[in-house]
Each structure stands twice: as structure tokens, then as C-alpha cells.
Simulated scan of single mutants.
Amino acid sequence: MSAIPQPKSSLTQSAYERLKGDLLACRLEPDERLNISELCGALGVSLGAVREALSRLTSEGLVVAEPQRGFRVASISEDELRDLYRTRIEIEALCLRRAIEVGSLRWESNLVAAYHSLSRTPEAAPGHPAHVGDEWLQRHADFHEALVSGGDSPWLMRLRTQLFQQSQRYRRLSVSLAKTKRNVDKEHRELMEAVLARDADRAVALMRDHLQLTTKILLAASRA
């Protein structure tokens, strides 16, 4: 029996998800040219599916479309890093305040569970003690999403997700654990406790400090 062909939409979604994963993990490096024919072969999808996926990623700021030249991975720079984190701080603050205002008991429970999972996950990559591990990065993303997921604004959450994903590219490229001196678990625990206490001002201040310290570390790493 011959295999049932996948719908075009499924193939496009698959290409989009795989490319996005490679971009966020920096397996596709900043400014790297994206050869559509090579991507078709690697992903096992059509030219149209790859083009549609790249167009979606362009709208998210992860890929740049250049007239007559095709697509490339979006650049990174110190100026963009500063702008990205300044903007992220403001959006995270709005999301956090709204979540604290309207979040449910289930949201609180999910936040505690996300923190527990993060705190029990080793930060270092297996076999590479100087580098952050993929599992920790995923648990870290889950925790930060849990902090704000009690809100009720899809627009704010979409903006926040895009900013967070862009910031992950810098973290992947720059940070070596050996060069970071911070008690990140304490920062996360204090953030969680302020949120559970429904203390919006303290939670926002802690989030601001947390992200500003991350910015400082990333800038220092980029200059090393």
C-alpha cells in the first residue's frame, strides 16, 4: 500500500517548525545564507513549503528576505541586544502585572510546578560543564512563560513570545557558565514568591533586575 501524501499545510508547518528550531538553537548561524534547494533536500519538502516557512520566519524577525539575493538568518548586534532586552522588560512587566491581577489558582499551581522542574534540572549540558544544557533552557523557557501565562491578553503574549525567542538566540551564542556569577535559582525563586504573593510591584522590579543582569552578562560575553 502506498503512503498517504501529507497535505501541503502539514509539510509547510513541519518545515517551519524544524527551521525555527534550528534558528533558535543557532544551528543556523546569524547572517548565514539560506539555500532553498538545500533546505528542500534536508527537510524533504517542496520548494513552495520552504518558501512559505521562510516567509513566516521573516515576519517573526528570525530570517531576512533580501531582494534578488534570497533569504539569510537575521543578524545579531550589541545595539539590537540592548533594544531587545529594553523592550522585553517593558512587555514582561505588562504581562506580569496582568497575570497577577487575573491569574487563577490553577495558574499558581502550574507556576510552582514549572519552578520545581527548572530547579531540579542541571544547568550544565551533559559532558559540557561550561555550557548551558538544552533541557535547562527548555525548562527555563517554560518557567518564564508560566510566570505570565495567567494573563488574558493574547496580543501581549504573542509579543512576549517573539521577544523571548529572539533573546534565546543571544543566550545560545554567548553564555558560558564558567563566566557567569549569579545565583539564578535564587532569582527565579524570589520571582515566583513575589508572584504568588500577588505583589506586582516587587515582581516587576525583580523581573527587571533579572533581565538587566542577563543583558549585562550577554554583552560581556559578546565582547570576550
Rank of each mutant, 00 (worst) to 15 (best):
M1L: 12
Q6A: 15
S9H: 06
L11W: 02
L11R: 15
Q13L: 14
S14Q: 15
E17F: 09
E17V: 14
L19F: 05
K20F: 03
L23G: 10
A25H: 09
P30I: 12
R33P: 02
I36P: 00
C40Y: 02
G41I: 03
L43E: 10
V45L: 03
A49Y: 00
A49D: 05
L57C: 07
T58Y: 00
T58Q: 04
T58A: 08
S59G: 06
S59T: 10
G61Y: 08
V64F: 06
G70R: 03
F71Q: 02
R72Q: 07
R72D: 04
D79Y: 04
E80R: 13
D83N: 11
Y85C: 13
T87E: 14
E90H: 09
E90P: 02
E92G: 07
A93H: 03
L94N: 07
R97F: 08
A99L: 13
S104F: 13
S104N: 12
R106M: 06
W107G: 03
W107K: 01
E108H: 12
N110T: 01
N110L: 05
A113M: 02
S117G: 01
L118R: 02
R120C: 10
R120L: 12
T121S: 02
P122Y: 02
H128C: 09
A130Y: 03
L137N: 01
R139W: 00
H140T: 00
A141R: 08
E145A: 10
E145L: 11
S149V: 02
D152M: 11
P154L: 10
L156V: 08
M157A: 14
R158E: 13
T161G: 07
Q166M: 12
S167C: 06
R169Y: 00
R171H: 01
R171G: 04
R172P: 00
V175Y: 00
L177F: 00
K179Y: 03
R182S: 07
N183P: 04
E187Q: 13
H188A: 15
R189H: 15
E190S: 14
R198F: 09
L211H: 14
Q212M: 15
K216Y: 11
L218Y: 06
